[in-house]
C-alpha cells in the first residue's frame, strides 16, 4: 500500500463513521465505568478528563445541583460532583448530557430536546413525591431524557416519519406505537430501548423506554419479557 492509498483508506473510514444512525456509546462512559469498579476509584483522574470538556463539566455541576435530579447540593467542582453523585449515578448524568450532543443540530430537533429536558425534570420531580419501589429521582430523570430518543433517530433514518408522527399525535384510540408499527417495521420505543442498551444504561431504564407506550405493563406488577 502506498501512503496515498493509506490516506484515502483513512478518509473512507472517517466518512463511514459519520454516517452512523445511532450514536455509539461515548468513550468517557468507559472511563467512568473503569474507575467505578476499582477499589479506590481515581476521582482526580476522572475529574481531569471531564474538566477537559468545559461544556460537559458545566452541565455536570449544574445537574448535580439541580433539585430535579434529586441531589440538593451546592457543589462547585467536577470532583465534588463526582463525590456527591457516586460514579454510577455520575455515569448516567454524563450519558444524559452527551445524548443531545450526539445528534446533529437542527431547529426542529432543538424543540424536541427542550421538551425532553422538561419531561426529564418533571419525571425527577415526580419521583421525589411518589416514593414507591425505591424509585430514584436521578433514574426517573435519566429515563425522561432518553424516553423518546428513538424519535430523532427515526426522523433521520426515515423520510416519511414526520407524517407518521403527526398521525400518531392526533390518534385518539390506538396507541402511539401502534400507529408507528402500522407504517414502519419498528417504533421509537424499540429504537430508544436499543440506544439505551447499547449505552449500557441500567436494564430497568432500557425496559421502561421499551414499554412506555404499552398500557398492559401498568396492569402487570412484574417487568415484562423483552
Amino acid at each position: 500500500m502506498t501512503p496515498a492509498d493509506n490516506l484515502s483508506f483513512e478518509a473512507k473510514l472517517e466518512s463511514t463513521l459519520r454516517d452512523i444512525g445511532i450514536p455509539p456509546r461515548p468513550i468517557i462512559l468507559d472511563h467512568v465505568g473503569t474507575e467505578m469498579h476499582k477499589d479506590e476509584p481515581n476521582f482526580n483522574y476522572l475529574s481531569r478528563i471531564i474538566t477537559a470538556d468545559v461544556g460537559l463539566s458545566a452541565s455536570l455541576i449544574k445537574i448535580t445541583n439541580s433539585p430535579f435530579f434529586g441531589f440538593r447540593s451546592r457543589v462547585r467542582s467536577v470532583k465534588e460532583a463526582l463525590m456527591v453523585l457516586g460514579l454510577d449515578v455520575a455515569s448516567r448524568a454524563i450519558a444524559g448530557i452527551i445524548l443531545r450532543r450526539a445528534f446533529p443540530d437542527s431547529p426542529q430537533i432543538e424543540r424536541f430536546w427542550d421538551s425532553a429536558a422538561q419531561i426529564a425534570r418533571l419525571s425527577g420531580w415526580l419521583a421525589q413525591r411518589v416514593t414507591k419501589n425505591n424509585l430514584q429521582p436521578d433514574e426517573a430523570y435519566t429515563y425522561g431524557l432518553f424516553r423518546d430518543c428513538g424519535i430523532p433517530i427515526l426522523i433521520a433514518r426515515f423520510p416519511g416519519y414526520y407524517a407518521v408522527l403527526a398521525e400518531a399525535n392526533h390518534e385518539a384510540i390506538a396507541s402511539f406505537t401502534a400507529i408507528e408499527d402500522k407504517h414502519l417495521p419498528t417504533n421509537h420505543a424499540v429504537v430508544g430501548c436499543l440506544l439505551a442498551q447499547s449505552w449500557w444504561l441500567p436494564e430497568e431504564t432500557s425496559l421502561s423506554i421499551r414499554y412506555h407506550h404499552d398500557a398492559n405493563v401498568l396492569a402487570t406488577p412484574t417487568i415484562p419479557p423483552r
Binding site: I22, V190, P225, R226
Partner: peptide, 17 residues
C-alpha cells in the same frame, strides 16, 4: 424466543442504516 425479536431486529437495521 422473544415475541419482540422482529421489531428489535428492524430497529437495529434501521439504526445502522
Amino acid at each position: 424466543v422473544s415475541p419482540n425479536f422482529a421489531k428489535a431486529l428492524h430497529a437495529a437495521l434501521l439504526c445502522a442504516n
